[in-house]
Each structure stands twice: as structure tokens, then as C-alpha cells.
Simulated scan of single mutants.
Amino acid sequence: MAKPPLTYFAALRAAQQRLAAAQRDESAAQFLLMETHQWTFTQLVQHYRDPMPLTESQVLTDQVTRVCQGEPAQYILGSAPFYGRNFRVTSATLIPREETEELVEWVLASLPATEQSVVDVGTGSGAIAVTLQAERPAWQVTATDISAAAVAVARANAQRLAPAVHFAVGDLLAPVTGHRVAAIVSNPPYIDRAETAVMDESVRRYEPEQALFAANHGLAFYQRFAAVLPDYLTPSGQFFAEIGYHQGPAVRALFQAALPQATVTIRQDLSGHDRMVRVQL
């Protein structure tokens, strides 16, 4: 006699138990179910007692096996939520994170909603650029990345969510040479390779190295920006970037040294860690 199918609740609990036993984040099970169906948490609860089709149960089992082995759930599904929208992600792009939403909030709050030229450097999946364009339709947003594969992913996200974003492949600000803009935004590589041993295993194994690591104790890209910002920003322009949680003092010092007339502000994330910098010319 065949066993009755699992309910969604039973399947969720079984998946959570497997993840806990493998010392992985149990919330991945809920994420997989909700994202697969595009359910809210309330909708998931409403389906708790429904039987899960056998084929779907097998898919979830296989997905959980991959998470137990360290693969991020976002790469398994090929999508990740960011600022209320779903973005396609691949091994060519970082997974967008909640801390970067706070950077986006800072940019949105700092610039008027009227026409502005904004550049997102190192766009990856396009999460920052696409979100800014979607939230501020009057802005002219350009996104650059040295990785053509990442730009292809970002362009696909923009076509679906904010088609007005312009894209260019190139190093740092090279694609917009000759233009001055109101704001430059970046979530650059900022991890020191000396920190590799304490990094999350799944990040180390699956996310693109080129988007993670930077020379000079993780400060190389901030040093490069500091050297060229006056050539690319308008006289009252602003630069925004995400930083490592322990980099606040060093980042402040290097921008103040390179741009003594600028106002440099370090902002903490909701967890109380230094996470963002703003440089106002």
C-alpha cells in the first residue's frame, strides 16, 4: 500500500531537519518553497495541510541535498529577492543581500527624484541599478561591470523590471569616461584574501572571486575611486559604496586624504556594523 503524500508542512519540517543536521541555515527550506511557488509566507501557511505532489516533493528533496552540500539556495533556483523584486542570479553574479538594500535606501533618500545621472559600478546582477531606475523613473541610470557575463544577467533583469537602464562592459568608470554624473554607486570587491579562512563556505565555493576579493587589505577599489571621483562627479556630486564591517576607519582615512575638501560619512547597517560610505564633493 502506497504511503500517502506528504503535506507541505511535513515536507517543510523534514527539509528543515535535514538542513539542521547538516549545520545549514534551516530557513533555506522555506525560501525554496516560497520562491518556487512565488508564495508569501501567509500563502505558504494556507497550503500547509495540502498534499505535496510527489514530483515536487522529489524536487525539494534534491534541492535540499544541494543546500546541505553548501550550494546557496539562490543559485539553485536561479533567483534572489531584492528590494521587493526578484532578480535572476547565476554563478557570474553575487547574490544580492539585505545590507545592500540599505545602501539603495541611502541613495534614494539623498538625491532628488527629479532627473539625475547615476552610475552603478560593478553592477553584477543589476540589483542596485535596476532598483534605482525602477524607484526613480526620471533618473538616467547606467550600470557597468568588467564581466560581460554579469552584464548579460543584469541586462536580462532590467528588461523585465526597468528597461531604461543603460549597460556597458568595462573596468570601473572607463565606460563613462568624458561624462560627469550626480552620483556614483558601487558594491565593489572588498574582502582581503587573508580573510578567506573565516569566510562563509558557500560564499567561498560558489560566488565569483572577481566580485569578492580586493588587494591592499580589501581597500584597492576605494583607493581607485578616490583617485578619480573629481573627474566623474559634478561639483556637488556624491559617491556611495558598501564597505566591509571593519573597514570604516581605513575607508574614511583614505578618502579624506585623497579628497580633503570632501565630506566623508560612514553609516552603519541595521546590525550596528560599519557598512556604507558616502563621499560628497
Rank of each mutant, 00 (worst) to 15 (best):
G237A: 09
D231I: 08
L173M: 13
F213Y: 15
Q238M: 09
S236Q: 14
F213P: 02
L229W: 10
A250E: 11
Y245M: 13
S186R: 09
A250V: 00
R193T: 14
F213G: 00
D200P: 02
P235E: 03
T196C: 13
D200M: 13
E195G: 08
G248M: 08
F213E: 06
Q238D: 12
L172C: 05
P208W: 09
A211T: 04
V198Q: 15
A215Y: 05
P235A: 12
V228E: 12
E201N: 15
H217Q: 14
Y232D: 02
A211G: 09
R205I: 00
T177W: 15
A220G: 05
E195N: 06
M199A: 03
Y232K: 05
D171H: 14
L172A: 06
D192T: 06
Y190Q: 11
A194E: 12
D192H: 04
T177A: 15
G218T: 05
V198H: 12
L212W: 02
E207K: 08
P249C: 07
P230Y: 04
I191N: 10
Y245E: 03
S186W: 08
Q247D: 14
Q210N: 11
I184M: 10
R224H: 09
H217N: 15
L172W: 15
L212C: 04
A220Q: 12
T196L: 15
S236K: 14
F213R: 10
E209H: 15
D231W: 02
M199W: 01
A227W: 10
A241G: 11
P208E: 10
R180G: 08
I243G: 02
V185Q: 11
F240M: 03
A226K: 02
H217V: 00
P188K: 06
H179N: 04
Y245C: 07
L229H: 00
T196D: 09
Q223C: 11
A182K: 07
G218K: 03
E207A: 07
L172T: 07
A183R: 09
V176N: 10
N187G: 00
V203Q: 10
S186Q: 13
P208D: 07
A250G: 01
N216C: 06
A197Y: 14
A182Y: 12
T196A: 15
I191M: 10
M199D: 14
D200E: 14
P189M: 08
D171V: 04
F239D: 03
A220L: 01
A226L: 10
L229E: 06
F221K: 02
Q247V: 13
T177I: 13
A250M: 08
R180F: 09
V228F: 03
F213H: 07
L212Q: 09
V181L: 05
F240T: 01
L172G: 02
R205P: 00
A194Y: 06
A220R: 08
E201V: 04
I243Q: 04
I243A: 06
G237S: 13
A197M: 09
P189R: 14
